[in-house]
Design a protein around this nucleic acid. Structure first.
Lengths: 217, 217
DNA sequence: CGCAACTTTGAGAAGAGTCAAGACTGGTGG
DNA sequence: CCACCAGTCTTGACTCTTCTCAAAGTTGCG
């Protein structure tokens, strides 16, 4: 599960000891796997630039993406010895890696880091709760509307068109739909004037925020 | 949202300062609400006995239960000022309430509690990831099979028949199904010999663990 | 310019939902 | 101790959203 590649990559990472926190900077290329389900969980990570998707697989290949992590977010912490999900870079990304041991009570406490980790875990849990509501109880239209509003919100530039950082297959696996349903729903939204879909397939402009918010229940 | 009732109930709680941790014991009757979505999040909780369900609602009443918390589990922590979900007792339950402020870095650190809270948050996140996979990607049969195996696992007594602590409606809202589908799926499992359903509707016996595990992918 | 990957669209199938009725359970009160 | 009633659960018939399978259309990179 790519552990070998990780081992190879590590020495090239830039140590940052002495900086604000003892992290190791790691550069990821598009689609590159940071760790896989089952890998030893010796490190956890904070996104510096780019975006990371975390996902779980069923034995027959069905996939659920649990979250897209953007700059500042912490992920990869585990209760046990092994990672319970896979983490991959959406496009190019950089992350800071921290040894799990630096959270141990015995460790000379970087208590600021411990604080930050707890706050981040609580935020992740909050988002997970919200996402469970979406997966379990929302219709396809509501799912896609919620996704568009969330992405637009998290995009750095204000309003106007924006580029989604992921393909339709990732959107589908995040929303618990098929790519066909995602595509059909977007086309329907465009026909209804809620959004505009410029030629480039990953660009989207939200035209009727009110209607989209109404779908977001 | 029942904040008043909470305020009334609080004085009756038994202070436990001086015990292993500074918590306030609270007794809940069947179905009683501990806090609701939107309530001020001044306290978080640890289950002592019984079971708590946490849930979120859409404006039209659709509900998603995020988790059933059993003894030892911590829940109710929030990133912001308000609770983002509702917590209710399934049957009678007792919980320990902790002030959120006791996690602040400035507070005389009960660092053991802080450790415990972080570990619990990570476990909750892990379970949430697993549940998102279930909600987004599993069929009704797989959902019910996973639920039965999980419940049987968490029941104190070994194997043999056990009593589910919740009605079908809670199971449905936990699995992202309707009560009819839950009921039909259980009946089908019983017809196929995977389980036995004694007269009392909440009792279940798993007869073919292997087949159930196979459905659990 | 050409190809591989991605996206859109269509037609039909199927899983789960909806609506409705009836059966059962467990608790209450006579 | 039994009869009744409200709430819960099961079952049936039908609908509909979403999935599946298939094919054609685009995009973007080399």
């Amino acid at each position: 599960m790519q552990t070998f590649a990780n081992a190879i990559r590590m020495p090239a990472a830039i140590a940052l000891r002495g900086a604000t926190s003892p992290g190791v900077l790691q550069v990821l290329r598009k689609g590159e796997e940071l760790f896989a389900e089952g890998d030893a969980a010796d490190w956890f990570y904070k996104v510096v630039t780019g975006a990371i998707r975390t996902s779980k697989l069923l034995s027959d290949g069905r996939r659920q993406i649990g979250a897209f992590h953007l700059a500042g977010e912490i992920f990869g912490l585990e209760a046990g010895e092994a990672h319970r999900f896979t983490a991959e870079a959406l496009a190019g990304a950089t992350v800071l890696a921290y040894r799990c041991t630096c959270l141990e009570p015995s460790a000379y406490g970087d208590s600021a880091l411990r604080e930050e980790v707890l706050a981040s875990a609580i935020r992740s849990l909050d988002r997970a709760q919200e996402h469970m509501l979406l997966l379990g109880r929302k219709t396809a239209q509501e799912k896609v509307a919620a996704f568009l509003l969330d992405m637009a919100d998290r995009m750095p530039d204000g309003d106007g068109p924006f580029e989604l950082p992921m393909p339709r297959s990732d959107i589908a696996d995040y929303l618990g739909l098929t790519i066909e349903t995602v595509s059909r729903t977007l086309s329907q939204f465009a026909r209804d004037g809620l959004i505009r879909l410029p030629a480039a397939s990953r660009w989207i402009e939200l035209c009727n925020l009110q209607a989209l918010r109404q779908l977001n229940v």
